[in-house]
Design a protein around this nucleic acid. Sequence first.
DNA 1: TGTTAGCACTCATATTGTTTGAGTGCTAAT
DNA 2: ATTAGCACTCAAACAATATGAGTGCTAACA
Lengths: 341, 341
Amino acid sequence: MELDERKLTILRAIIQNYLETGEPVGSRTISKYTDLNLSSATIRNEMSDLEEMGYIIQPHTSAGRIPTDKGYRLYVDMLMQDKQAEMDNLRIELNAKSEKLDSILKEAAKVIAVNTNYASMITAPRYRKHRIKFLQLTQVDPESLLTVIILDGNIVKNNLIHVEEDLTQETLLKLNLMLNTFLQGLDLQEINASVIQKIRTESGGYSSLISEILDVIATSMESEEVEAYTSGSTNIFKYPELNDSERASGLLNALEEKKQLTELMYQEGDSDRGIQVYIGDESPLEATKECSVVTATYHIEEGVYGKIGIIGPRRMDYEKVVGTLKRLMSELDQIFKKDKQ
Amino acid sequence: MELDERKLTILRAIIQNYLETGEPVGSRTISKYTDLNLSSATIRNEMSDLEEMGYIIQPHTSAGRIPTDKGYRLYVDMLMQDKQAEMDNLRIELNAKSEKLDSILKEAAKVIAVNTNYASMITAPRYRKHRIKFLQLTQVDPESLLTVIILDGNIVKNNLIHVEEDLTQETLLKLNLMLNTFLQGLDLQEINASVIQKIRTESGGYSSLISEILDVIATSMESEEVEAYTSGSTNIFKYPELNDSERASGLLNALEEKKQLTELMYQEGDSDRGIQVYIGDESPLEATKECSVVTATYHIEEGVYGKIGIIGPRRMDYEKVVGTLKRLMSELDQIFKKDKQ
DNA sequence: TGTTAGCACTCATATTGTTTGAGTGCTAAT
DNA sequence: ATTAGCACTCAAACAATATGAGTGCTAACA
């Protein structure tokens, strides 16, 4: 059987109607909804065909039709081809007060959630390989030493170390110089035994201190727990089909744990395939089998990127979601570009 | 009417039974449950009295009784008097891998949530008045300057500032020295116009840089958004009485926003009254009117403390909750003490 | 005087049956 | 190829009924 123009029109009409109402849509509705001027009976025949082809389904014998995942998929693919979703009058404004990355991200997650009425999650950029850009030890008070580690992309990490021995200003300077000399530009793998050995001999003593510093560096760099922020998790209560306590609980749990979702978003790794849509069962995550997940990638610099995800019901307003995401991306890009120059 | 020993026993039995089952408890149940060896009829009489006194209530004419807030209050107060909740065999173990404050707190929230099966929230310690302990500017690369600000209690804040002018190592040293001289030990209020004026004249030029630095300092210090972490929000689905979507949504929202809850926890400010219990309407928060909130305070050093909160249904297992909190407190105390020495 | 047995009464909940209406599939006519 | 008409299905809404846990009250009892 062939999926001709008319069938497509009807399918689109069914889906759009279902997106709005969340109720199965019947033939009479479509007969009036579209400008095809066809009677409900004709529509019924077409619907019957569409069902046979697997794009729609009846939840029970005498109900209207609802789209299957396959139907949604077709619809979304058509949407995506539609050139760019015209930048409409969405007012997305990031109130990035401070320029701190984390507050920008939190704000971004919130903006998305508020604008779309779905749940959102955003991850901090993940670096392929962290490299040390700069290192500094500073004596804060007689007992504590502050270590500041700056990684590629200006990620700043700091830790306080307790020290017993009193270090002179001079020693510190020497240590700083030495550490930077040996470690600058290295990633975690490259800090191997031989490098460490060199540092040890070079430093002459302070062995326990050095160990502690290296420890701190290691944990700072390997911290592969990507930071992630969620917003609007309670939006899911707005959609009756997610509203039973079992599902809601599972979903909220996923949003709280973040880990699984992060994996999902990063699963196709480095690819910058722009916007990805997972409809229902297409998602590998148990918790989101009844949902759709839309993910997008934002870039900070070459090879440094983070992800945004939107989670909502299957019948999410894909057009709006994709539009909103695109807007936000360009907004983020601008912020980071400004940040760079 | 008098609240004699027997009435108390019966009340306690009612509450305990209700805590377990969540169902209204009838006279026959109590008659068998307690070792008072009284018939259900007698119990009925007593219950009638207890109801008149306002400790219990019938949800509808022919149902068993459930405790009122007043009843819970009495029960909780009795509990609290019971010396210390004997340190039972709760296995609370903080896997504080890193010694970073935030990961300790996240872990603590999780431990609480897992152990009690309620939702938990923990706030990072709030300082009465932040004072500057130490300041440092460092050139990271030709365009960016790292400012590290260490506040009382070793809170480290850092920011990157973009600079156009190229600063010599010397200038930086001078600026560092100067800033520390003028600002060390001050809180935000004390950094007034006259101090700023002095810094400006002393620095000779770099006016825009100085402004930027002062800005950064101000935002770092006033950031009165107390960090807060939640865990186990989805536990609330385990209690049918909170499980309708309206309530659940409100609660989860409160847990997501965190702000209101933080205010609740800090509302009696500095007082270290140990463990506080808000039962139902006693809480000023709309979202938690159907819940109980138990809060506790942990101390890092004199005047520096944070809060932990547990949110669950009215019929929460107060005994367990209080016990768990006490355990956790001592655990935290130890960690921070070790951290100090 | 406190306790108990007995009984009529209440009312939420569960069960069952009935009605309604949206929606379908099929067939015959256009 | 399209449409009108009709019988059929079934979820959802509603009503009527049964069930049973639990109460309050009274009268008997220790």
